[in-house]
Amino acid sequence: MRIVRLFATCLVLLSTLLSPSFAQEAPSKQFAYFGLEPDIVTNYLGNSNRKLGYVRITIELMLEDVNDLEKADHHSPLLRATAIEILGRQPEERVKSLTGREDIRRTFLDTMRKLMKEETGSNMIKDVIFTKYIYYG
């Protein structure tokens, strides 16, 4: 009798897991990460006109959906150019401070989101992550 009850419980559980209503509750999107390769190396503005520093960063984009990887790859030259342009306009104080680094990251995020919205029609970038951030100058 115990085996029959156990078997019936398993059947109910299995039918619940396989039911269409249960499948709809499961999240359909899966986040993905796309790295802008190679590292971005560019100059930034120093305190004096004669002094230039450089910064080297590795950027990973957190994408809303794994299906956006192909779009990110296709638009990677535009994303890299945008990152270089943003970094090149930064003053030394901003590049070297932790709060400035976070401001730069947010600027990347906002700008890249707008670009991808214009180019693809979707908000595919969830976050921008700096996995390496080295400056000199």
Rank of each mutant, 00 (worst) to 15 (best):
A83S: 14
T131G: 05
V66C: 01
T42L: 06
T42R: 03
G35S: 13
H74Y: 09
G100Y: 05
D68V: 06
T42F: 07
N47F: 11
S76V: 00
Q30T: 14
R113Y: 03
R50L: 11
A32V: 02
E102C: 02
L63N: 01
E85D: 14
A83T: 08
P27I: 00
F31T: 00
K126A: 14
G46K: 03
I104P: 00
V55K: 01
P77K: 04
Y44C: 03
G88H: 06
H74I: 06
G35K: 10
R2W: 05
Y133F: 09
L14C: 13
A72F: 00
M116T: 00
D73S: 12
L36K: 00
Y133Q: 02
L98F: 07
R56K: 12
E118R: 05
Q24W: 02
V55A: 07
E119M: 08
L36P: 03
S28G: 09
R89T: 06
K117C: 00
L79M: 13
V55I: 11
E118M: 05
R80A: 04
G53M: 09
Q90L: 08
A83C: 09
F7R: 13
D127W: 04
E85C: 03
R89P: 00
V4N: 10
I40W: 04
L14N: 11
Y136C: 13
L52W: 02
Q30L: 08
G100F: 03
L17K: 08
V95K: 01
R113Q: 14
E118A: 13
K29A: 06
I59W: 03
D103C: 08
E92G: 06
I57N: 03
L109W: 04
T107E: 13
I3Q: 07
L36T: 03
L98T: 11
H75S: 05
M1T: 10
Y136T: 13
V41A: 07
I57L: 10
Y54K: 15
L115N: 14
K132E: 10
S28D: 15
D68Q: 14
A72T: 05
R80Q: 08
E102H: 04
L115T: 12
A32W: 02
L115R: 13
K29I: 02
E70V: 11
T58D: 10
M112D: 01
V12F: 13
L98P: 01
L36C: 08
T58I: 09
Y33Q: 08
L78Q: 11
L69F: 07
P77W: 05
R50C: 12
V66E: 11
L78S: 13
F130H: 05
E25W: 04
R106W: 09
S48K: 06
I84Q: 02
S122L: 15
